[in-house]
Design a protein around this nucleic acid. Structure first.
Lengths: 200, 200, 200, 200
DNA sequence: GATGAATGAGCATTCATTCAT
DNA sequence: AATGAATGAATGCTCATTCAT
C-alpha cells in the first residue's frame, strides 16, 4: 500500500468515525453531509469519493464491529451450531448497544421498508446481517449438524426479523430495557426450541 | 347536532378516509397534504381545521378501528384477564393488518424517531395503545384478577414494545410473514407465562 | 340607543381592549385575529363585523386617547397657537408612551410601508394625526394668529414627519430614551422657531 | 485569487446588484428569493451559498457605498472631528438617497425592533452604522479632540437614532422632502451644539 | 484524490378573509 | 349581530448530489 492509498484509507476512517460520533449524539436525520465532512476536516465533496449516498455511511459504521463477530465465529470452528448461535446473538446485541441508540434507530428505520430503493438494499445493514447468519446455518448444514432439508433462508429471515424486532423494543424503551437480557430470554424461549427440530 | 356540525364531521371523515387510501397505496412520505385534500375534495387549508400537523392524521387513522377493540373489551366484562389479553392481541394485529403495511410502517417509524418531543408523543399511536392496555391491566388489578403488586406500567411497556417489535418484523418481511400466527405464537410463548406470576 | 346597539358597542370595546393588551405584550405581527377574538370572548368572524381589515385595529387603538387631545384643544379655545402646539406635542407623546412601544412600532411601520395603497392610508394613524394638526393650524390662520399665507399643509407634513421620526428613535432605543424629554427639546429647537416666521 | 474564487465573487456581485434593482423598484416584501436569483441568472439555492437569510441581502446592499464613507474618513486623518462629522452626515444621507427610498424603508423597518432576533442584529445596517460612528468618536477622544469623559456610546446611540428618525421622515414624505437639506439643518441645530460641550 | 460552488426539487403551514347559517 | 367552517395564496429554506477545476 503506497502513501496515497494510506492517506485515502485514513480519510475514509475519519469520515466513518466523525459520522458515528455525530449520529450517536444527534441522530442521522439531524446531521447533514457537511456536518460530517467538517468534523472529519475534509471538503464536502470528499464524502462522495468514498460513499455513493449519505445513507451508505450507516452501513459502514457497523462494518468494523460486526465483522469482528464473523471473525470470532470463524475461530470457533470446533464448536457446535448451538453455541455459535448463542455467541452470535450475544455479540450482536453487544455491538448494537455499543453503537448507541440513535444508530440503532437508523438501522431499524432503514429496514422498515425493505423495498426502499432496489439498489439501496445492498447498502443496508440487515442484508449484511442476513448473509452472515445464513452463512453460519449453511455451514452447519454442510457439516451435518443441521438436517439437509433445513429451511435455511426462512430461518434466517425469521431470526433477523426478530433481532430487529428487539432492536425496535430497545429504541422504544429509550434505552431503559436491557437489550442483552432480552436477547438471552429470547434465545432460550424461541431460537433454541426452533432449532431442535432441525438438529441431527 | 345541527347541520353545520354534521357537515364538519363529514369533512373530517373524508380527510381520514382519503389519507388512509393514499398512505396504503403510496406510504406516508410519498404523499403530501395537498394530495389528501384534493382526494377529499376540500381546500388545502381545511386539513388544518382538523389536524394540527400532517403527522396527526397517522394517529387518527387508527382511532376508529382500535377504539372498536376497547369497546369489545368493555362488553367482555365477565371474562378473565387472560382471555381479554388474548382477544386484545388478536384484534390488535387484525387491525394492524387491515390498515395495511404502509400505515403500519409509519406507526412504527414514529416510535423510532428520536426527535419525538413530549407534546408530539401524545399524537402518536403507541401512546394511545399504551393507555388502552394499561386500562385493561389496572382493571384486572382492581377486580382482583391480578395481584395488587403487579407492576402494571412495566408490563404495559414491555407488551407494547413487543407488539411494535412484531410490527417491525411484519414490515421487514414485506407482509410475507403472517402477523396473526406470530401474534398467537408470541402470546403463548411469552405473555401467558409472564402473567401467570401475577394471577391470583 | 337600544339594547342591541349597546351590546354591539360593548363587543367593539372588548375587541379594541383585547387587541391593545395583546399588541402591547407581543407585537402586532405576533398575534392573529383569532387571538384577539378569543381574548375578547367572541367568534373569529365577529372581528369583521367591526373592522374591515386586521390592520384597522391599529388605528382604532389610538382613537380614544388621541381624540381626547382634540377635545382638550377645543376647550383651550382662548389660548394662543403656540401654547396649543406645545400642549399637542406633549400630550401626543404621552399617549404614544401610554400605548406602549409595540403599538408605536406598528404605527411607525405603517407609515414606512410602500404598499400602503391610498384607501388603506385612511385607516392609518398618521393620516388621522395629520388632519387633527391641520385643523389646529387652519383654525389659527382663520383666527388671524398665523399669517394668511402660512403654508399650512407643508408645515403640518413636516411636523407629523418629525413626530414619527421621534417615534422611530424611541422604538430604536427600545424605550431607553425618554420620549417626553426629546419632544420638549425638539419643540424648543425646531418648532418654535419655525412658527415664529408665520405669527402675526 | 484563482479562477474559482473570482467566479464566486462575481456570482455574489450579481446577486447583490439584482437585489438592489428589484428592491428599488418593488420593495423588499414584494420580491422573493427566486425573483432575485432569476434576475441574477443563477439557481435559487445559490442565494444561500452567499447569504444565510433573505434579509441579509439588505445589509449587503449598503456595504459597498457605506464602506466608501469609512475610507474617506480615514483619508481625512488631518481634519478635526467637527469636519469629519459633517462629512459623515452629508455622505450618509447621500448614500441613503442613492440606494433609494424602498431600500431605506427596509433599513428603517429593520431597526424598529432592536431586539428582533439576537443573532439577526449583527446582520442589520444600524449595527454597522453604529460601529462606524463609534469608531470616529473614540478616535477623537484618543486624539484629545474630545474630552476624556465624553459619553461616546450614548452620543453614538443618539445620533444614529436621529439619523434613522430622519430616514423615517424621508420615507414618510415619499421622497418629497430633500434629505440633504434636512441633514444639514439637523447637523447645525443639534449635533454641533451637542458636541461643543465635549470639545477640548 | 480533493475541492467547494452550483444546483433545484420539494412542501408544510399560517391566517386573513368570506359567507352560509 | 354572531358564528366558525372553509378557503387558498404564498414562499423561504435545506441539503444531497454533481462536476469543473
Amino acid at each position: 500500500m503506497n502513501k496515497r492509498q494510506t492517506a485515502a484509507l485514513e480519510t475514509k476512517r475519519k469520515l466513518v468515525s466523525a459520522s458515528l460520533e455525530l449520529i450517536k449524539e444527534q441522530g442521522f436525520d439531524a446531521i447533514n453531509v457537511e456536518d460530517i465532512t467538517k468534523k472529519a476536516g475534509v471538503a464536502k465533496g470528499t464524502f462522495y469519493t468514498y460513499f455513493k449516498r449519505k445513507e451508505d455511511i450507516v452501513l459502514e459504521i457497523s462494518r468494523a464491529p460486526f465483522s469482528e463477530i464473523a471473525n470470532e465465529l470463524k475461530e470457533m470452528g470446533g464448536l457446535n451450531t448451538s453455541d455459535k448461535l448463542r455467541h452470535y446473538f450475544h455479540r450482536f446485541m453487544e455491538c448494537v448497544e455499543a453503537c448507541g441508540i440513535n444508530v440503532c434507530r437508523q438501522w431499524t428505520r432503514d429496514v422498515l421498508d425493505p423495498n426502499n430503493v432496489p439498489d439501496t438494499k445492498d447498502g443496508q445493514k440487515w442484508k449484511y446481517d442476513f448473509e452472515m447468519l445464513e452463512g453460519i446455518l449453511k455451514d452447519a448444514v454442510s457439516k451435518g449438524e443441521l438436517k439437509k432439508d433445513t429451511p435455511v433462508e426462512l430461518l434466517t429471515h425469521i431470526i433477523i426479523c426478530e433481532l430487529y424486532g428487539m432492536m425496535t423494543c430497545w429504541c422504544m424503551s429509550d434505552g431503559k430495557f436491557e437489550p442483552l437480557d432480552w436477547t438471552d430470554r429470547f434465545y432460550q424461549a424461541q431460537i433454541k426450541t426452533m432449532f431442535e427440530t432441525y438438529l441431527n
